[in-house]
């Protein structure tokens, strides 16, 4: 049932050097299903932003636009550059997109090969690739796992390696799709600590409102292909009416 949305009552924090800007993005899937209806948002350097909303809100679809895998109508700018065909490789190096299912993200037989895939395909020389693999694995506290086989890892380990696979590309923004889904409490805790420590701009879609509250100062709420709220997490979590209207719960 359609919900009539009030104009967003929160104003996103202003900033200068935008890492990411999306203006009036529309997108329909080939089967005609319209998934995005004019999405706009901005991310600044160092922002850690949660993206929440019910199933089918369009969060994943939006994320696929951020590195040009999908191309809808509207503008997407990364680090001030509009995404075009020619700058796709550099855009993809800047936006580290991690998919929801780590089995889709980790497609190589060994951890090393997976973490090396990004830097290798950026055309870096072998020594740099190896150095980046080492530091990316260190960043997610998984150095000991370098030679492991991907299919032997637990879900929590897979998720952390999945993050390493994009960290090795030195992205300027990390885009994570539901990183805490399917994790047990301890693995979830490890992940939260990891995300807190990573000194990088991030946009994280999640249904885990406790995670939102704990980690992200700013939250964007999406529903039915639109941004319906964008502001301080503290304030959004207090707005009971907004939360119930979009199927969210206060943690």
């Amino acid at each position: 049932m359609p919900i009539s949305h009030a104009t967003p009552s929160f104003v996103a924090p202003e900033c200068e050097g935008d890492v990411l800007q999306v203006r009036d993005l529309h997108f329909s899937y080939p089967d005609g299903h319209a998934a995005l209806h004019g999405v706009s948002l901005k991310l600044c350097n160092g922002d850690k932003v949660a993206l929440v909303g019910p199933n089918g809100a369009g969060k994943s679809t939006l994320m696929l636009h951020l590195n040009g895998i999908l191309g809808g109508h509207g503008e997407v700018e990364i680090g001030g550059q509009r995404i075009t065909r020619d700058n796709l490789p550099s855009i993809r190096a800047m936006v580290g997109l991690v998919f929801q299912n780590p089995d889709d993200q980790l497609f190589s037989p060994t951890v090393f090969e997976d973490v090396a895939f990004g830097p290798l395909h950026m055309g870096l020389p072998e020594a740099d690739v190896r150095a980046r693999v080492t530091s990316a694995l260190e960043a997610v506290r998984m150095s000991a796992y370098k030679d492991r086989l991907s299919h032997h890892l637990s879900v929590g380990e897979k998720k952390r390696i999945a993050i390493a696979t994009v960290l090795s590309m030195n992205p300027s923004i990390l885009v994570l799709d539901e990183p805490s889904a399917g994790l047990d409490p301890r693995a979830r805790r490890t992940l939260i600590n990891l995300l807190r420590e990573l000194p990088i701009t991030m946009l994280v879609s999640t249904h885990d409102m406790a995670l939102v509250k704990e980690l992200f100062p700013r939250t964007i709420v999406m529903d039915e292909g639109r941004v319906v709220a964008d502001g301080l997490t503290m304030e959004i979590l207090e707005d009971a009416e907004l939360l119930t209207a979009h199927g969210l719960e206060k943690p």
């Binding site: 936006v95 998919f99 993200q105």
Partner: peptide, 16 residues
């Protein structure tokens, strides 16, 4: 395929 694209795959595979 999307995950590969996101990590710089353009149709040519490199291995170490």
């Amino acid at each position: 395929y999307n995950a590969m694209l996101s990590r710089g795959y353009t149709g040519h595979l490199y291995t170490l």
